[in-house]
């Protein structure tokens, strides 16, 4: 396995404002990382920094053997970064199928494989983006990112606002992606307990700084750590 992503002492934010302070971590090809922390701690900003949508102030950003800091935002998807933003950003006036095919790169993931993973998208392929339910939109946003055949998939709170049944299905699919494909995944979530079993590493942010970086399994088994940073050591059943 070779190194895919490396951040060294990265500072980033918006304009002059610094949100992320001194972030360092690295991922191998096919690796998985849970990016955790309460609201407003800088999770989305970290993904935006990778995508070039937030401002990188200093520190090394290496992706796939390249200095990411010199690659313009519009070139980063082409390098192999697939972003599923928190807002999902479906094109409302394109059909499902057009949403999937408007930007794609050749590779394992094609229309047929995306439809196998998300059979509902196949049924809805002629419907417009703005006719979709929240669950369908999230599936489309994920399918669209897969069509880019990214080396690293960035999922920003993909479970937010969805009914438990859909949450469970997406968790199963994300597990399949992290286990079976060579694609690396960074998964942002508020509900740590649900995603720690799906990932190898975890990074916890608190006000823009890393307060935990290590094995997901270690964090999962440490209720005190989980409670202190995330207030989610216990998970009640889904009702």
């Amino acid at each position: 396995m070779s190194e895919l992503l490396r951040l060294e002492n990265v500072f980033a934010g918006y304009g002059e404002a610094v949100v992320l302070e001194g972030i360092s971590f690295s991922m191998e090809e096919g690796d998985s990382l849970a990016l955790l922390g309460r609201n407003g701690m800088g999770k989305t900003t970290l993904l935006s920094t990778l995508m070039g949508a937030a401002r990188h102030h200093s520190g090394a950003l290496h992706f796939s053997g390249q200095d990411l800091a010199v690659v313009p935002a519009h070139g980063r998807a082409h390098l192999g970064l697939g972003w599923v933003p928190q807002e999902r950003d479906i094109f409302p006036s394109l059909t499902v199928e057009e949403n999937l095919t408007v930007v794609s790169r050749p590779g394992h993931w094609n229309l047929q494989r995306v439809y196998e993973m998300f059979p509902r998208l196949n049924e809805r392929r002629a419907n417009m983006g703005n006719q979709l339910s929240g669950g369908e939109q999230q599936m489309l946003a994920m399918g669209r990112a897969l069509m880019l055949n990214p080396k690293l998939l960035l999922l920003d709170e993909p479970l937010e606002g969805l009914a438990p049944l859909i949450v469970q299905e997406l968790l199963a699919i994300i597990q399949q992606l992290t286990e079976e494909s060579g694609m690396a995944v960074i998964l942002v979530e508020q509900h740590a307990r649900q995603i720690l079993p799906l990932t190898r590493q975890a990074l916890v942010l608190e006000r823009g700084r890393a307060v935990y970086l290590g094995e997901s399994a270690t964090l999962r088994d440490d209720r005190e750590l989980l409670d202190s940073w995330l207030a989610c050591g216990t998970t009640p059943a889904a009702h």
Binding site: P119, G134, E136, A163, L165, I166, Q168
Partner: peptide
């Protein structure tokens, strides 16, 4: 696994995507 997935893809929104 397939059974779970089939259910999600049949149940109407907002609980499922079917």
């Amino acid at each position: 696994r397939a059974l779970f997935s089939r259910i999600v893809n049949m149940v109407p929104a907002p609980y499922g995507v079917g």
